[in-house]
Simulated assay, not measured.
Amino acid sequence: MAESGSSNAPNYFLTTTRVGFRLWTENDIGLASALWGDPEVSRFIDSRGVLNVAEVKQKLNAELQSQAEYGIQYWPIFLKENGEHVGCCGVRPKDISNGVMEFGVHLRRDYWGSGLAAEAGRAAIDYAFAHLHATELFAGHNPQNKASRHLLQKLGFVYIGDEFYPPTGLLHPSYTLRRLTVTT
């Protein structure tokens, strides 16, 4: 069964060959719970491991607030062919005054290893540089998540050191990607 969110018609602001991006809404608690309520997903992003409904709601509210304040979030993504919820991908504020945003992807377990993280990631990166005028993207990953390390390297991010990440209580390998400027 497809999980297309709160309406039947997709309202995508960004698409790739296989996925569409839209904004989170308050009605997306079911989608958010299927993603961040999965202990296999949350173990990489939160030291609490299994997130209960209230904790998932807090994460969803943080995304809604980021969108309201900065016009950015880790947007929910869906398969275009059937509307199934895949996860989320996008940017968050890092150092907005200097054009630095934090890039991230969280996929539902059924889509791990499908190439969708790279596909959505490329689109979100291009969107951040072209439409949001980011000058640099920051990203980090749980040190035990080798797939995320591989993804960030594949997307062109460069390792800059380890940074403490309060939600996991761990030092996360951290990376940067700068917008290329073309001079003629």
Rank of each mutant, 00 (worst) to 15 (best):
E69W: 03
G90R: 08
L79W: 12
S174E: 06
N61D: 15
I45T: 13
G104H: 11
D38Q: 02
S6L: 02
V91P: 09
R48I: 04
G115R: 07
A139T: 12
N27S: 15
A128F: 12
T17V: 13
S66A: 14
N11V: 09
T16N: 02
R108Q: 14
T184W: 05
H85A: 14
E40T: 07
R179A: 10
R109A: 07
Y165G: 05
P10C: 13
V56L: 10
Y165D: 14
A34K: 14
I125L: 01
V158M: 07
S6R: 10
T183P: 00
N142H: 15
S97W: 01
T25R: 07
G104Y: 02
W112Y: 13
F103A: 09
L116F: 14
P167H: 03
Y111M: 11
F164M: 13
L137P: 02
G49S: 07
T184N: 11
A68K: 15
L35P: 08
I160G: 01
A117W: 04
H150C: 11
Q73F: 11
I77P: 05
W24M: 10
E81G: 00
C88F: 03
G87S: 08
L170W: 02
G156L: 10
D46Q: 02
V182E: 11
K146P: 00
D162H: 13
G113N: 09
F21Y: 05
Q144H: 09
P167W: 01
T181L: 02
G83E: 11
R92V: 01
S42P: 07
F21D: 05
S4T: 14
D46S: 13
E3S: 12
R48Y: 01
N98P: 00
A120V: 07
T17I: 10
L137I: 05
A128T: 00
H141D: 02
D28K: 04
S42E: 01
F44S: 03
F78C: 11
S66K: 02
A134C: 05
F78L: 03
G49K: 08
N8K: 14
M1D: 13
T181K: 12
A120W: 03
R108V: 11
V105R: 15
W24V: 09
T17G: 06
V19C: 10
Y74G: 04
A2N: 13
G90K: 07
Y74F: 15
S148R: 10
G90F: 10
A134L: 04
W112K: 02
A120Q: 03
P167A: 06
S66R: 07
W36V: 15
L79K: 13
A124D: 08
L180D: 05
E136W: 01
F138A: 07
L116R: 04
S114H: 05
V182M: 12
L116M: 14
L151S: 05
V56R: 05
D28G: 09
G20L: 04
V19P: 04
T25P: 04
S174W: 02
S42W: 01
S174L: 08
